Simulated assay, not measured.
Amino acid sequence: MEEIMQTPIRVTVWGENVHEDREASVREIYPDTMHETIAAGIREHLGEQTEVRTAWLQQPEHGLTEEVLAETDVLTWWGHAAHDEVSDEVVARVHQAVLSGMGLLVLHSGHFSKIFIRLMGTTCSLDWRSADDQELIWTVAPGHPIAEGVPHPLVIEREEMYGEHFDVPQPDELVFISSFGGGEVFRSGCAYRRGRGRVFYFRPGDQDFPTYHQPGVKRIISNAVRWLAPGELREAPNVHHRPMAGWFNSP
């Protein structure tokens, strides 16, 4: 039988790169930056199934030029302190790429990013507490590809708390929920479809904790990359103009 060659998933890992630049405590946890750590986790789990590059806020056009996005199947997004510094032009470019079929993985405080708010159409606000909180991530859709091989629950010993109400649309698929020491719960793994693209929001990843070094978190991110990858050629949805009624009966 002839072997079928699989085309690698082209992944761009985008990071704000502000905390790493300004805070020694964050550099101690992520000496290679958060985005490089996330990229390394994807390479570790998916290997030759992916081609992974990184981009960050301070680059020209934030590293997300038309050429880069055209060569990106899945974009991951981590931002926190500089959402307002992201160019509206770049946001519009990413938005169009998602509608055309590119997958988008939004991480932690990326819930307040311009692109996520635009895709959700809501405030994306939530409750939070910055403390050493234990987070239990519970799988509520065990048959979903993003949940494959993930412990139930996945225990994160130290994290920031996010709690409901999370002002996002009802997810098309809810894969994970989180619980915290204060009794709070949160929809921490939310899957959406926008146009021809898929979007997944995954909650953990505060810059003050080594969350992206944790094997279970790396597993979820890698699973999400595979699920988000477009299954067909990317193309913007078309709007058709019909010149006459009954066109479908014409010879």
Rank of each mutant, 00 (worst) to 15 (best):
V91I: 15
D21S: 15
E232S: 01
L119D: 03
H144R: 08
M5R: 00
T65F: 05
G181W: 14
L126K: 07
T72R: 09
H241K: 04
W227D: 07
G79M: 12
A191M: 08
E157P: 03
D32M: 12
P145D: 05
E20I: 03
P169N: 04
L104H: 07
L64I: 05
G121W: 05
S87I: 02
H80A: 03
T37L: 10
A55E: 14
V217N: 12
S109W: 05
Q170K: 13
R196S: 04
E164M: 14
D84C: 06
E67R: 02
G183D: 15
L107A: 01
L119C: 03
G182Y: 09
P8S: 03
H240F: 11
G197E: 11
P60T: 09
F200C: 07
L136F: 12
E173D: 13
V106A: 02
M5C: 00
W138T: 14
P237D: 09
Q207Y: 12
I9Q: 01
A245Y: 00
V185T: 15
T65H: 03
H240E: 07
G15R: 12
D88N: 15
I221V: 13
R234G: 02
I221L: 15
P237W: 09
G183P: 13
V150Q: 13
V90H: 08
V150N: 11
R158G: 00
V11M: 02
S178H: 12
R242T: 00
N238L: 13
A245T: 00
D32G: 04
I220C: 06
H35A: 14
P8H: 09
G182T: 15
F166R: 12
E66M: 01
E148L: 10
T123R: 10
V168E: 06
L99S: 02
Q207L: 06
N238Q: 12
F166I: 06
E184C: 13
P153W: 12
P169W: 05
F209S: 05
D172W: 01
I4R: 10
W128K: 10
V74Y: 09
A131G: 04
P8N: 02
H45C: 04
D132Q: 05
H95T: 02
H95P: 00
R187C: 07
L228Y: 08
D206M: 00
I38F: 04
E2K: 01
M34A: 09
K114C: 08
F202I: 01
G181R: 12
P204L: 06
Y212F: 13
E51D: 04
E66N: 04
P251E: 06
P142W: 09
T33R: 11
E61W: 04
R10F: 02
A24K: 05
G143L: 08
D84W: 14
H19P: 06
D172G: 02
G189I: 04
E159V: 01
M102K: 05
E48W: 06
G195T: 08
L57A: 11
D208H: 09
R93D: 07
G246T: 00
I177S: 12
G205L: 11
R242H: 03
R196V: 01
R43I: 10
R219Y: 13
T7M: 00
S250I: 01
G181P: 09
G15M: 12
T12P: 02
T139R: 10
D206P: 01
A147N: 09
M1I: 01
S250P: 00
V11L: 05
